[in-house]
Design a binder for these strands. Structure first.
Lengths: 362, 362
DNA sequence: TATAATGACTTGTACGTATAAATATGTAGC
DNA sequence: GCTACATATTTATACGTACAAGTCATTATA
């Protein structure tokens, strides 16, 4: 291997910077100084300096000199080479997602990644648009809360395309295919199972449920409930289950028909399992309006343990949501896939039950 | 402007590539060909080629020649050429920011911008780190909620540097300098003025206040309160004002001393103006614990009109927060600055009072 | 005292030359 | 038809020179 003169100078300065003999912002030797020092031509010195500048270790200013730019070196090349992770979520304005994203952002910044946010409003079309837009961008990985995960998704193949291009995708909250997807989710079935067992232990046998029909979470929570009831030899009355779509949920407060539906489903039951705290509060409000006392006359249990449910006049007993843990696991898993340290990530987080005031012994 | 020879060659080749006279993978003219073609020295040709290689438009192979690398340019450049807007906020997990960001994301995606998120945890150090990190990145603009906006900020000069580089900065929620900054904020002083007037109209003359000391919003809300009281000839007792820092706020629930402080400040008053709904609920909780009934024995009014305050056992009367409007205005203003359609943006949004249950006539 | 001019020093652009090393190609020899 | 070799072409490294242009501190001037 031939010894390159410019390489000698380049390495020398690089070492000075790394060993902090030259600190950030310091002016390095001028071209003429280096010419003398290494007994080379100006051209060779400039070659070395150009390479260092290209690497982002120094920058030069006309008429002033070259200066160390070490602290920014890693990221200096800008977003072109910097590591971008896209986080795709349904909505930002709920009580779960912001916490997850905040955790992801925290860890990502620490690791030198940048977080880009996209919202789908839980609409397949917006999700599709977003994925197509990202398709020819230079992203390192995707963390996605899939839209309408309970239904067959026409966007599954788009996510697949990212994986085929070597861009890992981690699903959170739900997934599109349990076989092929990488995901970090909450074990909703187990959570619902435990919630139902908790009601049963409090003497409830007539239990109704309000679930969301378009998210896989709703399906899992439903099946956890059913499982617990079957195992406790409690008969299941499908009439006591109310399925709501995202659309319904938005209009539920205004829509008289839906309110009536709630009551027809809850009739003859002593407890209700609600898809989440927001829904639990909506249901509770309607019950209060009809002078049904909670928890004395009707118990309610729900999911996600939000401050919203905490602040309600009857604090809603709820299955906790490990938001920070989920964000952390999702990011770490994604990095594992990016760095090819693992091939498949399928994590299911267990959750605790947080006892509050909305469930009573019958 | 001096005409640079290497620049002529560089632009010529770049044009050949863009116009697809030279397609991806094609070998470009050799150095000696270019020397003849442009009648320059080899050095000048190499200067041009080096720059093109640095841009990623071509690559060179020893002994073979230089080749067009255009297909990768779009991909490689990826986000470099795409329009990135960075949104810097204190926290994501509150009731205001996610809505604002969601609106910004919605509009940005529509206009072909990409949103990058950073959280400062309302810490000057983290804000600084974030700004330094962004300094060398190719962003189109910044929407920032400044950290600790009530105090003189050492990061003000960093924001200034962005502006000097032609990267506009729009502050939301607060600003660092009313003279020089571009901002879209809520008119907190007017809001507090109206809130105070509302209390006065309900017969309250002994009014206490709980404010945040490190955000400019707290200062503005305080001064709005003072203004209203002065104009109504109500004497102000500084002992009835409690100032909390972000630090305090976090420990307030656990810290006995602070709880006592709250009560010493609220003593002898019939109503309290709270910095926001979260604080209002904390204060209300403590009052309830001491068997003070709200609103019968003490009225509370606050800011931001969050669902959190809505769900509280006594729905908190609160000044509304135009989250969507603010997000929209911030984004549109930023685009105006980016496209140089405007030079200065200083928007103050007026807010409504949302009457609920926590204020009563005395 | 404030401003303008000067000169020393710095990097930027541009020319010329020479040799080294990698690649491509044509030719001679088997 | 294949290999080995010589040759031409290409880029890479390296020397030298000259002048342009930006920065900065000192000096001279108004």
């Amino acid at each position: 291997m031939r010894i390159l003169k410019y390489k000698i100078i380049e390495d020398y300065i690089k070492n000075e910077v790394i060993s902090e003999n030259l600190k950030n912002g310091d002016k390095i030797y001028s071209e003429s100084q280096l010419m003398v020092k290494f007994n080379v031509s100006r051209h060779t010195v400039r070659e070395a300096i150009n390479r260092l500048a290209q690497e982002g270790i120094i920058y030069t200013e006309h008429g002033r000199g070259s200066f160390v730019n070490w602290q920014n070196t890693v990221e200096k090349t800008g977003f072109r080479t910097s590591k971008i992770i896209v986080v795709i979520v349904s909505y930002l304005n709920n009580h779960i997602i912001p916490d997850i994203i905040q955790k992801i952002e925290e860890m990502a910044t620490e690791k030198g990644y940048n977080i880009m946010i996209r919202c789908t409003h839980n609409q397949i079309a917006k999700e599709r648009e977003c994925l197509l837009d990202l398709m020819n961008k230079n992203v390192f990985g995707i963390i996605a809360e899939p839209a309408k995960s309970a239904l067959p998704s026409p966007n599954a193949c788009l996510y697949q395309q990212f994986r085929e291009k070597g861009i890992p995708v981690i699903f959170i909250h739900g997934y599109l295919s349990q076989q092929t997807d990488d995901y970090v989710v909450v074990d909703d079935e187990a959570a619902a199972y435990n919630a139902t067992e908790y009601l049963i232990r409090h003497g409830h046998t007539q239990i109704s449920g309000v679930f969301k029909s378009d998210d896989i979470q709703g399906v899992h929570r439903y099946s956890g409930m059913i499982k617990a009831m079957l195992e406790n030899d409690i008969s299941i009355n499908e009439n006591n289950i109310l399925w709501l779509s995202t659309q319904d949920e938005k209009y539920i407060l205004k829509n008289k028909v839906l309110v009536d539906q709630i009551f027809s489903r809850l009739k003859n039951t002593t407890a209700t399992i609600c898809y989440n705290d927001d829904l639990a509060i909506t249901v509770a409000d309607k019950l209060f309006e009809q002078h049904v006392k909670i928890p004395e006359e009707h118990s309610i249990i729900s999911f996600d343990n939000t401050p919203f449910g905490d602040a309600y006049r009857v604090a809603i007993t709820s299955m906790d949501h490990p938001k920070g843990k989920l964000g952390k696991a999702a990011f770490e898993s994604l990095v594992c896939l990016i760095e090819k340290k693992k091939e498949k990530i399928q994590v299911s987080l267990e959750v605790e039950l947080i006892e509050k005031e909305s469930v009573q012994f019958i």
